[in-house]
Design a protein around this nucleic acid. Structure first.
Lengths: 184, 184, 184, 184
DNA sequence: TATGAATGAGTCTTCATTCAT
DNA sequence: CATGAATGAAGACTCATTCAT
């Protein structure tokens, strides 16, 4: 495992635990066991570490969500997509926390955020196709995607907080609510 | 206006502009024109300023959401509630940030979390009544509330990220999507 | 109990626990429950509190040491004086620690230290008389007093450290050693 | 000379002049001409500088006391040991301060206390041998050591307080008093 | 590629003290 | 007598970053 990956991995863990601003370079250095200068050898500065991390994680999203999607109609595909993302977040808590953190922070340059959007392409296509098929009402796709992501994220939070034992029936409810919102 | 209020007000403004971590005490001191020691005379430390601000802001929470709700049916009430919450978050970024962070464990003292929980009461009532009225399908109320909050939050994030200029029509779309999800 | 005494007492306790430099005015204020300004009403500044404390404590010494001294010869008087001081320190740990702290600190103005010396008068007299009586060898009285005090202090420290359970026989040994040193 | 040594040396000098608490990091930094961060690169915090200094100084301790001790009888050895310790304390005020504070509990980590304890070994041997030789009366060795140390310390304090200009004759008196106490 | 010494601006916080009430 | 708001210099320590090896 290269020093660079070690730094990235350590940073991801630290940010997940403490948030972006709570995580200093000194901490990353101490925790990763890598030398001071080594970090600066691989990254221009602190922001670049975070940007790179963001880049890595967002690349996953597209492929993850569309895994095992049958070539059937939207109604069949939707719950699978939904669960794909849900379980991806459950199984990759780092990715979840990080992406939640990032979403509301200004630390990622706008350019990067736009860059990342292209990995949403497949989700975007899904909603656009659904609109063309008259399955979905013609809402602005960006809005649809954000609400879709947001719904999944809400349920992940419920799951994590364990306020309530989240059951399959709750997941199914959430998917149904999510789905119905987009219909004509 | 007391020095204490000045500090609180200044801090609120700075946090609104730059986020919590971007705001240092030195800035607060410089901006508020108050002496270093004066801040520490009134607050135990930096966190206490923020906690106190949070406390002030969340006092409104419950009343804000239910402001101007007509005694009509759910269909009329829903978009008003939705917008109340949305604009409250837009105008009180600190409240939004906190409310988002509430989910995350250690940072916010437990007492505050419980404090905040009571403001969900009115939304809880709203959904339960809607179910009784056969307006809403009988989903688990907690799930409904979380998705409702999540939808508003998603749009606030879009607004803040300025990926796209958020227009009234987008808001209306989001409200409609949100609403439809809960129907029978 | 006057506010002034409360401040003095609190200061004494704090200094005993944490040393002079470890004890700040803020701590004294917090601990004594007295207001900020009240302290400055009674004392010109921090040093004055300590000086006054020093003054109070040193006044005791003379009387304490000479308590119950029989009008007999030095040989009979010496062990009683020695024990008087020893048990005074054991029973007034504050006085002991404080006087140990003070001895090596420069916080007490020289003038005060000299002022306090007059309370050593009776011990001074004791040694001078002993010299005149040919009981003691004519050493410089100041040296004799300091060594006398030092011997008692050494045993108090042993007692406090509990490295070893200090027995009566140890005390008697120490007194004997102390006594023999001064003889002709 | 490494920056680290410069910091240590400067600190030692400052503490010698002004005492431990009178010496601030800012002073150390200013005086040593080293950058703020450099100090913290080499030491975890202020205390670590002092601990390290203490460690350096006490290394000598044992050897210092036994320096130039002739292979003669106790009577010849005693004043040399006494003066060795006395001048060591005079020239290493930090060592003196620490050695005095060692008695006090929490400040010095236990490990250090035990470390320091081993330097008593040689003095312990000296007194035990003297007892076997019938030079000294068979007092408990611990008591003898403590009183011996205490006597030296008393004179160091007199020297430092400058109540009186301490002359060679005073030292000689103190040594004599100290010596006679232990005799049979 | 990797290291770690060096930097100094900046962080939060504590301090002794003054002053108006 | 007593209070506590207000002060700002000084405290310890952290930070992101540079540079020579």
């Amino acid at each position: 495992m290269s020093k660079k990956s070690i730094v990235l991995q350590t940073t991801l863990e630290l940010i997940t635990q403490q948030g972006i601003c709570g995580t200093s370079l000194s901490q990353i250095i101490k925790e990763s066991g890598v030398a001071n200068g080594t970090v600066y050898h691989h990254f221009k500065n602190k922001d670049e570490i975070i940007s790179e991390l963001y880049f890595m994680l967002t690349q996953d999203f597209g492929t993850v969500i569309m895994r095992n999607i049958p070539p059937a109609d939207e109604k069949k595909q939707f719950p699978i997509m939904w669960k794909n993302l849900f379980y991806y977040f459950i199984n990759n808590p780092l990715a979840f926390t990080f992406s939640e953190q990032i979403a509301r922070s200004s630390e990622i340059p706008l350019k990067m955020k736009e860059e990342a959007r292209k990995y949403y392409k497949e989700i975007d296509d899904f909603f656009r196709k659904g609109i063309r098929n008259k399955t979905f009402k013609p809402y602005t796709p960006l809005i649809m995607e954000e609400l879709f992501f947001g719904n999944v994220a809400s349920m992940v939070k419920v799951y994590k907080n364990e306020k309530v034992k989240l059951l399959d029936k709750h997941i199914d409810q959430a998917i149904e609510i999510s789905w119905k919102g987009f219909l004509r």
